[in-house]
Structure formats: C-alpha cells, structure tokens
Write a protein that binds this DNA or RNA. Structure first.
Lengths: 245, 245
DNA sequence: CGCTTCGTTGAACTGGGTCAACGCGTGTGG
DNA sequence: CCACACGCGTTGACCCAGTTCAACGAAGCG
C-alpha cells in the first residue's frame, strides 16, 4: 500500500497563508484514516451529523443541494487538497450533501483533533478561516456566473476555474488533462439541462477550444476559454496576500 | 445626536455563538466611527484596498459583482447587525463592491483592533468565523435559487430570507414591514430582468401573498410565501448549534 | 450478449428577455 | 408655485435561449 500523508493539505494552505515548520509538523501529525469513494458515492448526506473533517487527497467531489421540485444543484466542486467540510469545526448538521464526482481518496480527520490544533496555532486557525473566505468568494462568482452569463460563457468559466484550481493543487494540466463529468453533472453545476450542455459542448468543440471524448473534456485552448469567459481569477485569491504579519 | 453602540453586533453574534461578558465588553469597547450612506452610495468598490471593517447598524446594503458584459449581479444582501467585510481580517483587496440599498448607518472599525480582539478571545474569533460559514451557506442557497427555481419561486424565496433575517436582527416585521427595492435591484439579485420582476410581483400580488406600493413590498402572507418557495431555513443556521464546549 | 448509462439529434415549445411606449410620483429650478 | 425632467413601474408585442420530449446509438459492464 502506498504511503499517504496530509502533505497535500499543507501545500494547499501554504499557497495562501504562512505555515511555519512547527505548524506544518502538527498538521502532518494529525491522526487520520483513509476513505475511498467511487463515482457517485456519498461522502455525507444532508441532515447527517458527523464529527470528522474530510480532506480530499485525490479525485473530485462536489457539494449539492436539492430544490423543492427535486432539481439538483451543484454549488461547489472540490479538487485535491481541498478541505471538504471545515464547517464541522462549528456546525455539525449539514443542509447539503457531498458526493464523489470521480473515484476519490479522502483523509478522515477527527474534528476534535483539528480543533485543538487550530486553537493552539493561530496560524493554522487563520489559514483554515481564509479557506472559508475563499469558499464564499467562489460561491459569489458562481452566483454571478449562473445569474448573468449565457450557457456558452458559463461553461467556459467553469472550465477555466477547475483547470486553474487543479493546476494550483500541483497537477499538470495542458492538453493532456481531462475532466470527467457527464453532461448532467455539468448541467447541475451551471443551472442547465444535460441536453443543452451537450449542445454547448459541441459549440466549444467546433471552435477548437475543447475536445470531448466519451465523458471527458480536454482543454485545447485555455487562453481562448479565458477570453470567451472574461475570466478574472481574482476571486480565487491564489496569491499569499495575507496582510497580517 | 443619538447614542450609538455596537450592541447590535453583539446581539447578532450571540444568536449563534456564546459570547461571555468579558468578550461582550471587549466588543463594545472597540473604537469606531459612524458613516451614513444614502441609497446607491458605495461603501467600497471592487479593486479598493481598505483597512477598516464595516458593521451595518441600520438600513440595508448589498454585495455585487459585474459580469464581463456589464451585467450586475447582487450576490448577497446585508441586514442590520451584519458584518459587511469580515474578510478584511485576512484579505485587503476586494473583487466586488458593496453599495447601500437604502439609507444606512455603518460602524467603521479599524481592522487591526478587531484582529487583536479576535486573537486574544477565541470565543470572538470563532463567532466571527462562524459568520463566514453562514455567508457561504447563504451563497450556496442563492446558487440553488437562481440555478434551479423559476422566477416566481425565486422571488418568494428571497422575500422569505430577508424577512426572516430582519426579524432575527430584532425588528418586528409582519404586515407593516416594508422592503424598499426597485424591480431592477430585485432582478439583479435573482438573475432576472426588471420587466419580468414586475410581472412576477403582480402575480404574487394577485394571489394575495404580497402588496406592492410604489417601490416597496409588504409581506401579506409569509406562510403562503414559505409554502410556495418551499423555504427551509436550515441554511441560515439561526440556532446556537455551536458544538464546541 | 443483453442491459444500462449516457451522449446525440431533431422538433416543438415556453419562460423570460427585449424593445418600446406610456404614466405616475417626486424633485428641482425658474 | 408651477412646469418640466427624471426615475421607475407598467404594459404589450415579439423574440430567442434554453427546455422538453422522444428516439436512437455507442461504449462499458456483468
């Protein structure tokens, strides 16, 4: 069996916050177990009470809510390194579900251990808190995406965001990177129907921006997508602009 | 001149978190100045760098982003007691603007003072952090609202949310409560055009759920609205369900 | 090899957008 | 104190992006 650590979590937090060696070691020494999910498996469901915190180590997961008429809406996507439910530090009842978008590996950390760490290391507390700000910032951008952009631009914007976040998580993207999402998944993230998503995908293929084979999408021209989507990455707050010193 | 305190902030934090007397006093002793805004005045603009934290004491403000084609999207609304930009604790560059929806009074607190307080009182830090979680939770519900509900239900849902949040801020609502928003404001919050908003408002009037006079809306039948919107207030996390003890 | 899942395509439909005209308060300047 | 202008709600006619429904096909899996 492979040797698994929480290094990816440290790397992710380091992108935006300063984490000194002591804090890094504390994080790496957190107790955790591993959980493997297959596509569509639930990590947790709306209404459940859980006392663990999940960190995504590989694969993708997504957060979803269900509208009154049964319509599913994906409200966030997690990439490797992301903490899935940092809310668990303060809330233990969930009003949404998290499900695997692909096969995924997840570190399961007792929330109490993380809480102790946060309380003893301000640096870690602020780093985790900053992550919460970014979650909100991304959600606001999604509201803008769904509320004010047409289907083509919405899709391009989503692809730009995911590509960039995956790169920042330390994976090479480029022509070889593939995103495995069904038309229904994409539609549920963009507020569209799967039928229309396939039409829009074909449009973006026709102009050479992406390539779709089976249920995976490859980015052929990220700059073209960025231009089309008028993508401004400020909302991802990727630089360490922490101004506490 | 009236005597103004940050009591409303304490009350707001108390709704969800435990704030002991010492922490309460520290909060009330925070230095602050007052700022008065008229409808449409900007509190801050996208791209600005600011080192103060704003707390809304009376009136309403909203957070907005602008899409590439110039379309405005309102991504959040603040009610009295809300901290407008708690992000300032860690981020000092904004990717969105905040504007007054009505005449508003705002407490302006040096971020550094708030930061010192948060670092010396875990209780306050967690209370502020919890507020961030709720901001994200509300944003996710808005994504679902805009992505998966039709115009009538979207509007009903927004009205339910605002009514409840204003009540929780300690104001009486009921038949006399009025919300002053133009059709354009509402449209920008719901991802609709002002023309369609007036049509939907008329629909809700026809069935006796609301009353519109000039540019204000009164709620006539909050239960009817809740039923129509299938409103589930869990996402507002109004109870003190903080499970750290 | 048959079943399931999902992409693909076409045709018809509709919720909401667009455009344009009008009307009613309100505020403002002469 | 009146007249005009401006902001915004209202209404109607028309339009279109995206939905709906349905049929078909291809890959993957047991």
């Amino acid at each position: 069996m492979e040797y698994v650590t929480l290094q990816r979590l440290v790397t992710k937090l380091r992108r935006r916050s300063t984490i000194d060696l002591a804090s890094e070691n504390s994080l790496l020494n957190l107790p955790f177990t591993l959980k493997k999910l297959s596509r569509s498996d639930y990590l947790f469901r709306s209404g459940e009470t859980i006392s663990v915190t999940y960190v995504l180590l590989s694969g993708f997961t997504f957060r979803q809510k269900v509208a009154g008429d049964g319509g599913r809406q994906i409200v966030a996507i997690q990439v490797p390194g992301d903490i899935v439910n940092i809310q668990s530090l303060q809330l233990n009842m969930y009003d949404h579900s998290v499900q695997a978008l692909s096969d995924a590996t997840i570190a399961v950390i007792p929330t109490s251990a993380l809480l102790v760490l946060a309380q003893s290391h301000d640096e870690i507390m602020f780093a985790l808190w900053l992550d919460t700000f970014v979650d909100a910032s991304i959600a606001w951008e999604w509201i803008t995406n769904i509320g004010r952009r047409n289907a083509r631009i919405r899709l391009a914007h989503l692809l730009c965001e995911i590509t960039l976040r995956v790169e920042m998580a330390g994976f090479h993207t480029g022509a070889t990177h593939k995103l495995a999402m069904t038309s229904e998944d994409i539609g549920d993230a963009l507020g569209l129907t799967p039928v229309h998503v396939t039409r829009v995908i074909k449009e973006l293929m026709r102009v050479g921006l992406i390539l779709r084979e089976r249920r995976s999408i490859s980015i052929l021209d990220i700059n073209g997508l960025r231009t089309l989507a008028d993508f401004n990455q400020a909302y991802l707050h990727l630089q360490n602009i922490n101004h506490r010193i």
